[in-house]
Design a protein around this nucleic acid. Structure first.
Length: 284
DNA sequence: CAGTTCGCCTGGGGGC
DNA sequence: TGCCCCCAGGCGAACT
């Protein structure tokens, strides 16, 4: 469930280790992974390409190659794993995990970049290289990134003033604001002091200013702490974040608000598990 | 157009 | 021990 902070960390790890590396060959074993073309074309197009630039947009990773924009979305459990050799990959992974590796990128220097995804939800897209990656078709339904300095509270307010869905659902709508998932949506609303079930249309400009400010500070904090590691999120080999220790409401085991120690409420909003503190968060 | 439901996937956990 | 069922969840497609 990598959200913007986790994607940032994955990208930083890959940039550190892959920048300038060349792909020699690709083998994809889960056809749906190549989302906008055949496996054959996907494998063929990437062969010989170098990793040049690493960009995040929302929860998407964008690798600018020589002639291609290579876009990946990890969805729930996608992971990029880097090995020094094929032998190391064979040795490192328990047999039961091997079946979850759906793509192997063999690099010209002998290293192996493996893509592992237990639930097979992740997707990868290839496009001819373009000036503005945000204009790629895959981003048609993705709005401005939460950390885009050009995003304003005013435009969020105007865009959502007639939306009746709970604000929690609106924060998960990537077309409205990109990069926020279930964990940070709860934390952002806690920080903004707003109850998650509040209809978006009940919010005023000041509420959106609080939300945007909260989003920026929480996402940046979380990213600087390596992201949140709950359940299986990790990247690289031994990496994991520590922001799970800072969570004020989301999935807290003690069931108590991280600020006032009051009882948290758990409910479903738009089918998603949601936690909030009725003492700290107001319904409007 | 806004909102709802379903399907995609699999491992893990609870009930029996 | 083993089987069944539910759950987690981002997102797109197909509805109302």
């Amino acid at each position: 469930m990598p959200e913007a902070p986790e994607v940032s960390n994955v990208l930083a790890y890959l940039e550190e280790n892959l920048k300038g590396a060349q792909i020699e060959s690709v083998k994809v074993t889960h056809p749906k992974l190549a989302a906008n073309e055949s496996v054959e074309d996907f494998e063929r197009k990437l062969a010989g390409e170098h990793f040049r630039k690493f960009i995040r947009h929302g929860k998407y990773l964008i690798f600018e190659m020589d002639d291609l924009d290579f876009v990946a979305h990890l969805r729930m459990e996608g992971k990029f794993l880097l090995y020094n050799s094929l032998e190391e990959l064979e040795a490192a992974d328990p047999i039961q995990d091997k079946k979850h590796i759906h793509a192997i990128f063999s690099l010209s220097d002998g290293r192996i970049l493996a893509y592992k995804d237990t639930r097979k939800f992740g997707r990868m897209y290839l496009y001819p290289k373009t000036e503005d990656v945000c204009s790629l078709p895959v981003f048609d339904k993705v709005g401005k990134d939460a950390l885009d300095p050009g995003l304003t509270a005013k435009e969020l307010y105007e865009k959502t003033r007639k939306r009746k869905l709970p604000i929690k659902s609106i924060l998960l709508d990537q077309k409205v604001i990109a990069g926020i998932g279930n964990i940070y949506a709860d934390e952002i609303l806690f920080d903004a002091g707003l109850a998650p079930q509040t209809p978006a249309s009940h919010l005023d400009l000041a509420d959106w200013q609080k939300i945007l400010q909260a989003a920026r500070s929480i996402l940046a904090d979380a990213a600087s702490q390596g992201g949140t590691t709950i359940r299986s999120f990790s990247y690289g080999t031994n990496h994991g974040g520590s922001y799970q220790n800072q969570l004020k409401v989301h999935a807290r085991e003690d069931g108590l608000c991280g600020k006032c120690q009051g009882e948290l409420v758990r409910l479903k909003i738009g089918g998603r598990s949601t936690w909030y503190c009725p003492a700290c968060q107001k319904e409007k």
